[in-house]
Design a protein around this nucleic acid. Structure first.
Lengths: 164, 164
DNA sequence: AATTTTTGTTAGGATTGGCTAACAAAAGTT
DNA sequence: AACTTTTGTTAGCCAATCCTAACAAAAATT
């Protein structure tokens, strides 16, 4: 099956898969009620979503039984979570957005970013995290200050000074 | 009317408003066919969307007439475009994502970012653009290299070297 | 002015996704 | 075992979007 033939599922379905994976991980079993609570939708909506996910072969779900992800479903869930975590990290750690808001934004943006953006951003965060200067690179601290005060210290000047 | 009372419109409606504003700006008048082409939907879909936007008082549209944005509609369109441009800039100029892809991503993400993220990112870009080192700050060049080669030159070392 | 072409609307249908009310099944209690 | 509570499904409804086919209005042509 070529890439072009893979029917893309909706953001919504991605969200369901993500939640199912999370519950599976946290509790071992996945029940309609739990999904319902976590997704903040009523139970019939969950039943409906599960039917659709079953049609796409992304979950296995016998009526009144537990919910299981298929391999394909688990894969999509993992990928979605990866995007989610990446974005949360970028917004939270790099930009220092409030965690709650970073989470909310990540939750929505996660369905929209291209592979290329995902990869660039991954590298970018790695670039920030592996900075030899310590936890937070100088230039980012400089940005923090710029954001707070509207002023900036010149990177070069600063470093030269610190060597005195 | 308090903020909480403002009924939020869908991403879709935001897109229509954005396109209408764009056409208004480019051609002076806005016709169903143009919207249809730019949105890549059929004309009946446009008629439908315009009816909905009219109900929300975001456009004025007499049957068979031109389309006009109301003040409120224009405001939403402007804000959406601002988010769009910001994201395109960030992805394109900072991360150097291919322009086409940056555009596509921006187009989707623009509907999802919080005010806080918008503002932080705005400052971030300003921080990058007003860098005293020239067009592209040293740390970003360093990232470019890191992305290309997987290796990084130490910022301090580099600067010290360049002073010899 | 009559005809043709273009443009826009209506009517009717599909899909996704959510809801309530009512019922059925499973689990827990006495 | 019988009853109650919890859990899950079905049925039926609504809204947002999109579509096609058919029609109506406006614009352009002859």
């Amino acid at each position: 099956m070529k890439k072009k033939d893979v029917k893309k599922i909706s953001s919504n379905m991605e969200d369901y898969l993500e939640v199912i994976a999370l519950l599976k991980h946290k509790r071992g079993i996945v029940k309609v009620t739990d999904i319902s609570q976590m997704m903040r939708v009523k139970k019939p909506s969950v039943t409906g979503a599960l039917n659709m996910l079953s049609r796409y072969n992304l979950v296995v779900h016998e009526p009144y039984g537990y919910v299981e992800l298929t391999l394909e479903g688990a894969k999509i869930a993992r990928e979605t979570q990866k995007r989610h975590n990446l974005l949360t990290k970028f917004l939270g750690e790099v930009l220092k957005i409030d965690l709650r808001i970073a989470e909310q934004d990540a939750c929505k943006i996660e369905h929209s970013i291209s592979t290329q953006t995902f990869e660039k951003l991954t590298k970018f965060i790695k670039f920030v995290e592996t900075c030899p200067e310590g936890t937070r690179p100088q230039w980012l601290k400089s940005f923090d200050q710029y954001y707070e005060t509207g002023c900036r210290f010149n990177c070069k000047t600063h470093i030269v000074k610190s060597k005195k």
